[in-house]
């Protein structure tokens, strides 16, 4: 919709001559800053309300506590309990639900080149 000329700005324009005095300029710039701050503060308020609502709606359930590592099985030989704890925590965060880790095996460094090749091949295709 095309708005007709607005009377209030017309009044403002009339109040601000082509070469305004210092006081006119100061009043004009303060008004301008008020308009800018009002517009952005309004958006700020709107975003706070929106954020408050969506944070409540989308609040994720608290992740299940990671099962405590009671004993280190034999298949974890050569790996420190701290490393087992870190890997267990990563698995818990990644899958969310409780999982049992049956073995932790160091990757064979000989396979790295082949793995990287496979990774690049898979990365070049778009999964559907």
């Amino acid at each position: 919709m095309n708005l007709p000329p607005i009377p209030v700005p017309a009044l403002l324009a009339a109040a601000l001559p082509d070469h305004p005095r210092l006081l006119d300029s100061i009043v004009y710039q303060v008004n301008g800053l008020i308009v800018v701050f009002a517009a952005l503060s309004l958006i700020w308020g709107m975003l706070e309300v929106m954020g408050f609502y969506f944070r409540r709606v989308h609040q994720a359930p608290a992740p299940a506590p990671a099962p405590a590592v009671v004993a280190v099985p034999a298949s974890f030989e050569g790996i420190t309990p701290e490393q087992v704890a870190a890997i267990s925590a990563a698995v818990t965060v990644l899958f969310g639900t409780p999982h049992r880790i049956q073995a932790i095996v160091p990757a064979d460094p000989e396979l790295n080149w082949a793995q990287e090749g496979r990774r690049q091949i898979f990365a070049s295709h778009r999964t559907r």
Binding site: L22, S25, I26, Y28, Q29, V30, G32, L33, V36, F37, A39, L40, S41, I43, W44, L47, E48, G51
Partner: peptide
Amino acid sequence: AMPRTLLLGAAAQMGLFVTFM
């Protein structure tokens, strides 16, 4: 995610009006 930074966007318009003067 951090709407209070809108104030920084508004504050940075100060230069426009001071330079107008």
